[in-house]
Computed example of a mutant assay.
Amino acid sequence: MKNSLDKNAKWLLLFGILLTFLFPLLLPLLNKTGIGNFGVVGDAIGGITNPISQLIGSILLYLALKAQLSANGIVQNQIEKDNIKEEQQHKTEQIRTFYSFFQETIKNFSYEFSDANGKQLLYGKRAIKCFLNDLEQMKVDIHNTDDVLMYDGVRELLSILKSAEELFNRIDTISSKSQHILFYRNLLQHELLFNIFPYQDLDDDINIKTGKCTICADAHSYYPPIIFDKIKLLESKFI
């Protein structure tokens, strides 16, 4: 319908232009008996052609406004695309910053490990593994949330896992087709698998497997349930 309207307007414009120029030439062929009653010939021609000229002007105005609206639409679409692109770049930068912070929290996790050779201050992956392994031997009921949360290491580890969950949520707000987002998602999964999650064979599909607890018979091994449940939640976000 829109194309038909444009086509009719153009034909009407062409007809009006031709009529404006041809009418004075055709005037001598017309019966001029009554022209004197209306004034001079110029007034008669003007009175006839003015409505046609106004019609042409109206059509030209319509076409000009239509072209302006079309141009405005193109500009608006480009602005919206630029805004979306800028917003995604901003979110990607936030994810990059958040991921760097997440890495630092893992690296800064510390635990003073004691064995027959003495005490040793551990950091990062080794500190997390040794802390969780020793937690079961500290005469603390790992099934009792209040008892477990008395240890700073548990609260710090939960904070790290919550940061990972928030990072996954932020990643999910951006198009999954973005190569940058896939890159950070894979890095995050790598950090969790090799630094926090229980050990598993690399050839297996991502499916955390741990030994059954001797007390509750659930497969959380020496991981406190409050931590293991969060780990399983993060595992469900893997691709």
Rank of each mutant, 00 (worst) to 15 (best):
K2W: 12
N3S: 13
S4F: 13
D6E: 14
K7D: 08
K7H: 11
A9Q: 04
A9T: 10
K10D: 08
W11Y: 11
L12V: 04
L12D: 06
L13R: 06
F15T: 07
G16T: 14
I17V: 09
F21K: 02
L22A: 11
F23D: 03
L25P: 01
L26H: 02
L27V: 07
P28R: 01
P28N: 00
L30S: 08
N31G: 04
N31C: 05
G34V: 07
G34M: 08
G39T: 07
A44C: 10
G46R: 12
I52F: 10
S53E: 10
Q54Y: 05
Y62G: 15
A64V: 12
A67F: 11
G73V: 07
G73E: 08
I74F: 08
I79V: 14
K81G: 05
K85Y: 09
E86D: 11
Q89F: 06
H90Q: 10
T92Y: 03
Q94Y: 06
Q94F: 12
Q94R: 13
I95T: 12
F98A: 10
F102N: 08
Q103S: 09
T105D: 09
Y111H: 09
Y111W: 03
Y111D: 01
E112G: 07
F113Q: 07
A116H: 06
G118P: 06
G118I: 05
Q120V: 07
L121N: 11
Y123M: 04
R126I: 02
I128F: 01
K129D: 11
C130S: 11
F131D: 00
D134Y: 02
D134S: 02
Q137W: 05
M138S: 13
M138R: 14
K139I: 02
V140W: 06
D141Y: 10
D146F: 09
D147R: 09
Y151E: 05
I171D: 01
D172T: 06
D172M: 07
I174S: 06
S175N: 15
S175E: 11
S176H: 14
K177H: 13
Q179A: 12
I181F: 14
I181V: 14
Y184N: 03
Y184T: 07
L187G: 00
L188I: 05
H190K: 09
L192K: 00
D203R: 13
K209P: 02
T210S: 06
C216K: 04
D218I: 02
A219R: 11
H220S: 05
Y223E: 02
Y223C: 08
P225C: 04
D229V: 09
D229W: 02
I231V: 10
K232D: 02
K237M: 02
K237N: 08
F238R: 10
F238M: 15
